[in-house]
């Protein structure tokens, strides 16, 4: 009982149990990298559409509007969900989101399996709820921005609401994610001054910051678990 190693391991037990039971710690760094890569690809594909090198409307809509126009500087057009569903950009955005979500999920799922933490336990649910609330509110707000044709505010809106969502969720997972949240918020707010460059800020926030964060997290946490297993 007087063995120091025993007491140290008791303290480690306590710490790990407190973390495991209150935070979802299986969030993998690789998930961040994967989501970031998806975002960069999405931004790259949509570049020509956003800055008017290719028309962003599909099929007959494109024809009716008589070809080229730049989304970044267009304002005040009549916007409806129907119209939104007929833009190439909407589908690029949707595909980017789905690809990012699935690839991020896969790496976190693998990690949670390895650690024996249930992927849909109480901690994961709490994290999802706290991240979803600002995201859903932000999503509705951005739909309204599209409705009024204020496209320049869409990218800052995404960044700001996503930053707030991460800050809100940081209490329920690895707390370092709050720095990612602050980063997104800062980019979003700076972007308000440079509204024509939304796509660049968007790519920096969702692409580069994600990859940076994911890389650091992977280096800090995941790398060690692999070497200790081997």
């Amino acid at each position: 009982m007087n063995n120091p190693h025993q007491h140290l391991s008791a303290l480690q037990d306590i710490r790990s149990m407190m973390e495991k039971s209150s935070r979802f710690i299986s969030l993998s760094g690789l998930s961040g990298i994967a989501a970031g890569v998806c975002a960069l690809i999405g931004a790259w594909v949509s570049y020509d559409y956003v800055y008017g090198y290719k028309d962003y409307m599909m099929g007959s809509y494109s024809y009716e509007r008589g070809g080229n126009s730049s989304l970044a500087y267009d304002a005040g057009m009549d916007f409806s969900i129907q119209l939104l569903l007929n833009t190439t950009l909407f589908w690029i955005a949707a595909a980017t989101f789905i690809a990012a979500f699935i690839s991020a999920f896969v790496f976190t799922w693998i990690k949670s399996r390895r650690e024996g933490v249930p992927i849909w336990g109480k901690t994961a649910q709490r994290l999802m709820i706290h991240v979803s609330v600002p995201l859903i509110a932000g999503g509705l707000y951005i739909l309204k921005l599209l409705h009024f044709g204020t496209f320049g505010l869409v990218a800052p809106g995404c960044l700001i609401f996503y930053g707030l969502a991460l800050l809100n969720g940081s209490k329920f997972t690895l707390s370092e994610i709050k720095y990612l949240g602050y980063g997104q918020l800062a980019l979003g707010i700076i972007n308000l001054q440079f509204t024509g460059y939304g796509l660049y800020f968007w790519a920096a926030g969702f692409g580069i910051l994600h990859i940076l964060y994911g890389g650091i997290m992977w280096y800090k946490y995941d790398r060690n678990t692999k070497t200790s297993e081997a």
């Binding site: 008791a10 037990d13 306590i14 710490r15 149990m17 407190m18 495991k20 039971s21 209150s22």
Partner: peptide, 13 residues
Amino acid sequence: RIRLGIMSALMVN
């Protein structure tokens, strides 16, 4: 260890 673990979880939830 088990009782220690139980109490640790109860302290933060």
